[in-house]
Computed example of a mutant assay.
Amino acid sequence: MQTGVPNGPVAEGAGAVGQFGVHGVQTQRDWPCLTQAEINAVLAHYPSVPTPVTPVWNSMRPFSAAVKIIDESSTGFLIKRHHTSLRSVAALHEEHAFMHHLAHAGVPVCLPLTTETGATAWGNDCWTYEVFPLAPGHDLYRDVMSWQPYQTAAHAYAAGQVLAKVHDAARQYT
């Protein structure tokens, strides 16, 4: 049993949700969805996100919990929570540094927001958090398991083009 698991109902508006498993969607989650109280506590450290916010969707991905929120002007953000046994604040900072490197090299990435101290991740108890603005466009694969094939050859081709840009940019990252 994991310690530090936030208690409380699923954030209102986001709906109860299972998670992806090997054989499709399973009803039980490894990590609970973020609660409204937890969302508010995280956002207290991210001054660029206007509050109040409303949760509108919970991710079904395993190994983390993520919630899409919108503010009163319908601007969207994503909060991701990881257990420290999977990703520490330091590990997230390194991932975010690589993302900044990719962005500087012209790769289209969505960069994390910063806390009041300028950090790109925040930790509390046994959890780490990161907050992102929503990327433009519609995520056609949001509710598709990662190991499923692309829906069209054009999608696979476009993903391959971006992956090539990532590999080219990564050569310069130490």
Rank of each mutant, 00 (worst) to 15 (best):
Q172T: 15
L102C: 08
V89G: 03
W31F: 14
Y46C: 05
D125A: 05
V144R: 13
M145C: 00
A91G: 11
H167K: 14
S88D: 00
T174S: 14
K68W: 06
S88C: 02
D71T: 02
F77Y: 15
A164L: 15
P47E: 01
L92Q: 04
D139R: 11
R61E: 14
A97G: 03
V56F: 08
A121V: 01
H82R: 07
T120N: 04
D143K: 04
C126D: 12
A105S: 15
H104C: 02
H100P: 00
D125G: 04
I79H: 13
V131E: 12
K80A: 09
S88P: 04
H83S: 06
V53Y: 05
A105Y: 03
P9L: 08
V5T: 07
A90W: 00
H45A: 08
A156N: 11
S85V: 11
A135N: 04
V53Q: 04
L163R: 13
P136W: 05
R81Y: 05
F77H: 14
Q148Y: 09
G137E: 07
P108W: 04
A66G: 14
H167W: 12
G123Q: 03
S48N: 06
G15A: 11
A11P: 02
G24T: 03
Q172M: 11
H93S: 08
G4E: 01
R171I: 14
Y46V: 13
S85I: 10
G137Y: 11
A135K: 06
V25P: 02
H45S: 10
A91M: 09
C33T: 15
L163S: 14
D168Y: 10
C110S: 07
C126P: 00
H104D: 15
N58H: 15
G21F: 08
L86M: 09
G118N: 06
A156K: 15
H93G: 03
Y173L: 10
Y141I: 07
T27K: 13
Y129A: 09
A153L: 10
A41V: 01
S73I: 00
I70N: 04
G76W: 01
R171T: 14
A14W: 05
K68V: 11
N124P: 00
Y157L: 13
P112N: 03
Y173W: 15
Q148D: 11
D71R: 04
V89W: 03
N7A: 14
H104L: 10
T27Y: 02
G123K: 01
G106D: 01
N124A: 07
V107A: 07
A90Y: 01
D30N: 10
A14N: 03
R81G: 05
P112C: 09
I79V: 14
A158W: 12
V89L: 03
L43K: 05
W127A: 10
G15Q: 12
T115G: 01
P6I: 04
Y141R: 09
R81K: 14
R87S: 02
V22D: 13
S48K: 11
G13Y: 08
I39W: 09
R87F: 01
H83V: 01
L163G: 12
S85L: 10
G8S: 10
P9H: 09
F63R: 13
N58F: 06
W147E: 09
A14G: 08
Q26C: 03
V67H: 08
A156P: 07
E116I: 01
G118R: 04
D30L: 13
W57I: 00
T117A: 13
P149T: 07
E72F: 00
T35Q: 01
L163K: 10
P133I: 02
V107R: 11
H45K: 14
F98G: 01
L113C: 02
V5H: 00
V49I: 09
E94N: 03
